[in-house]
Design a binder for these strands. Structure first.
Lengths: 209, 209
DNA sequence: CCAATTTCGAACTATTTGGTTGTATAATAG
DNA sequence: CTATTATACAACCAAATAGTTCGAAATTGG
């Protein structure tokens, strides 16, 4: 599958485009948007300065590509963590666990590009993108809760929309705590407890909602 | 009460020190730490460049003072919101409502300096400070839950520690959503629902915790 | 081997930024 | 009124930064 297309005409690139973008992700993730200089990107991506401008554009353009690639990858993994297990409890726990694990991964900065750094970027397009991504995540969770109703794991009056946004808020909280240095072990425990919390009403009570 | 001390010797300052720091707060809040230049501070604080260095020090020193003042003020108000009401539900709701209101205040940037901008500052002292602040908030909530047990509003096996951190996580989530533009009205509704959630186990079930 | 094409790498320019210095100004102390 | 003290303001300097230019290098096509 590799090299399936005719080589382009001139001098071959010394770097891999998607690989360079992944490295750029790490740079933005660890330094924040405003904290990153072009030289940081040049060094971190292993791409010469003129090539960087010619191929990727300026800092904002690079960040937008990074953001979209990151969201796609992370979104897919989160969806997998959420939708793979059969049981509802395992689904929610898997989702939150994934949030914690990716926010405390060794080798990357703590936290999450989408939650911890992108919101600070003062840019309308970024803001819209984040809103969409957040809405997408909540929608996915809501759908999973509905399936839980169908399978009888939670009662039919379970407040699916409210619980979905609450799971996203709890995930945000866990991620933020990862960023300020809370250890993975603690957060994994808290993720379990959070799962218990949001599923709590499946026995009886759901009160005024 | 004003002018109760002898005037100092030389030319009087053309600005108010604490007032200037409050303006600096707004600057950091709206632009993030790395996004702020000295010129931003000079303009925003209304203090000349040399005076700024002489009296406040460099950007990091200013930020540390801003951070501490902000945390003190905000912490006091949050504690008030939490401890003023007699009923437990009103306490928790008051706490979350305050988080939402201050994160969606007109005239300030959305979000919260402590939650949205300070964690990105790559500085050990800031990090320690944030951990302490977070722990303090959770401790306050935990104490309030304990009082709720004493008053009989929640059962004696209520998982106070878990619920306390969950409230902080939910507050973080609400605050982050404020930052990306979720309207106050939505967040206030969600704050009420979050309150319902964390108090849900007071009737019956608390499961494996 | 030579021409065409594309990228690489070093150097360059203009602008922004952090931090300082020097002089004028506004107050008090005697 | 003069000396002293402390701040204000403008200008300045060095370093960092964004973005570009240009010749050398590496490849394909003939």
């Amino acid at each position: 599958m590799i090299q399936n297309v005719a080589r382009p005409r001139g001098r071959p690139r010394s770097f891999d485009e998607t690989g360079a973008l992944e490295k750029a992700t790490q740079v933005f993730w660890s330094k924040g948007y405003d904290g990153v200089t072009i030289d940081d990107l040049v060094e971190g991506m292993g791409v010469g300065r003129p090539s960087l401008y010619a191929i990727f554009g300026d800092k904002r353009a690079i960040f937008l590509r990074v953001l979209k690639a990151y969201a796609e990858r992370k979104g897919a993994l989160a969806a997998k963590a959420l939708l793979s297990p059969q049981g509802l409890r395992d689904s929610i726990a898997g989702f939150l666990r994934y949030a914690v694990e990716s926010a405390t991964e060794k080798g990357s900065a703590p936290g999450c590009l989408l939650i911890c750094v992108a919101p600070l970027v003062n840019d309308a397009e970024v803001q819209r993108f984040l809103q969409k991504a957040a809405a997408g995540g909540a929608a996915l969770l809501e759908r999973r809760f509905r399936d839980g109703i169908s399978s009888g794991e939670i009662p039919s009056d379970f407040p699916v929309a409210a619980r979905a946004t609450q799971v996203t808020d709890l995930a945000r909280g866990l991620t933020m705590r990862a960023q300020i240095g809370t250890p993975r072990k603690t957060l994994l425990r808290d993720a379990e407890k959070a799962t218990d919390l949001v599923l709590l009403s499946r026995r009886g009570d759901s009160r005024s909602e």
